[in-house]
């Protein structure tokens, strides 16, 4: 019997490598995280390389997020009262990176000052050796103020700063450019919009080796299939050599999954949904796995049990690669 001839796709392009964290030139990180570099579709070791295994970031906020699911409150407990403590717990739980959200700077959440934000970032940097993603509070003007202050005071740490959107990217990109940081470019579930924002950012002179793209995650049951297909198309385009789609992708699987009713509702839901203790984690795991399979290079997660499950999954997915 003649052996089966395994069909292998020949790709001409590759995903760019992006490295977060630095231990020199102002950087103080004990470890760095590189992502990207793929020359084939995710985890197809028979076809090409995935030089860096996708990384897991854990989301930490600079104020106790009282609106988070009870399940998450229970998992992190008092650590949620202090970003540095929370970050340490997250690293113990298996985080490769910390995704710190400076929520308390939001005008509706206390309107914290830039000085406070910088102090929080510095405390987290001191508490953990891993690289940091720093998200502004999610209000355009305040994002700009806060992220510029943080970027300047952490020069050389090679943070990832987010979010850059089509209407609000210049200030953040400039701050990253001048201080050795990377940025996260977020666009709403669309291949062309993602390309366009990468072009705009690149036109400002920021090397594409410092740009992650966030195709805007939809949770399981809440648009996941749109994200899935847009990510597959972006990754296929990248492998076919379309330069402006070749950025590693970051997906906020945790935030999206835990925002939904399935991640929050206790009681008063059909029995077939299962208990919240299992359901929230299930929602996060399934969302995260689907995104990994379609090309996520960094997963931002919320629950320690999901972190553990996704670490095991990545061990198994990268076996023999």
């Amino acid at each position: 019997m003649t052996p089966v001839e395994i069909p292998v796709e020949k790709w001409s392009g590759a995903v760019r490598e992006v490295t977060l964290g630095s231990s020199y030139g102002g950087g103080t990180r004990g470890s760095t995280v590189s992502v990207g570099g793929e020359t084939a579709l995710p985890f197809l070791g028979f076809e090409g390389a995935m030089p860096h295994r996708p990384a897991i970031a854990v989301e930490v906020q600079d104020m106790h997020p009282a609106d988070w699911s009870a399940e998450l409150q229970a998992a992190w407990g008092d650590a949620m009262d202090d970003a540095a403590t929370w970050a340490q717990k997250a690293v113990e739980a298996g985080a490769d990176l910390i995704a710190l959200k400076l929520r308390s700077c939001h005008p509706d959440q206390g309107d914290g000052s830039c000085e406070d934000a910088v102090r929080t970032v510095e405390r987290v940097l001191a508490a953990v050796p891993v690289p940091l993603i720093v998200y502004g509070p999610g209000s355009a003007d305040k994002d700009n103020e806060v992220l510029v202050a943080v970027a300047e005071k952490t020069k050389g740490e090679q943070l990832a700063l987010g979010l850059c959107e089509d209407k609000n990217y210049r200030t953040i990109v400039a701050a990253a450019l001048g201080n050795g940081h990377a940025v996260i470019a977020q666009t709403p579930i669309d291949v062309n919009l993602a390309k366009q924002l990468n072009i705009l950012i690149s036109d400002m002179g920021l090397p594409l080796e410092r740009v992650l793209m966030d195709p805007n995650t939809g949770a399981l049951g809440y648009g996941l299939e749109y994200t899935y297909s847009v990510m597959e198309r972006l990754r296929l385009a990248a492998l076919m050599g379309d330069s402006m789609t070749q950025q590693p992708m970051i997906c906020t699987a945790g935030e999206e999954a835990w925002r939904q009713k399935e991640g929050r509702a206790e009681g008063d839901v059909p029995e077939a949904w299962g208990a919240l203790a299992e359901r929230g984690v299930a929602w996060e795991i399934s969302t995260a796995t689907t995104l990994l399979e379609s090309g996520a290079d960094i997963l931002v997660l919320r629950h320690p049990a999901s972190v553990s499950a996704m670490r095991d999954a990545l061990d198994d997915l990268t076996k023999g690669a």
């Binding site: 299939e225 299962g274 359901r279 299930a282 399934s286």
Partner: peptide
């Protein structure tokens, strides 16, 4: 037979097999 897992998978299957 874990309902939370089954509900996730049924939802995922519905998502993936929707006509894009």
């Amino acid at each position: 037979f874990e309902p939370a897992m089954l509900y996730s998978l049924l939802t995922l299957r519905q998502n993936i097999y929707t006509d894009p």
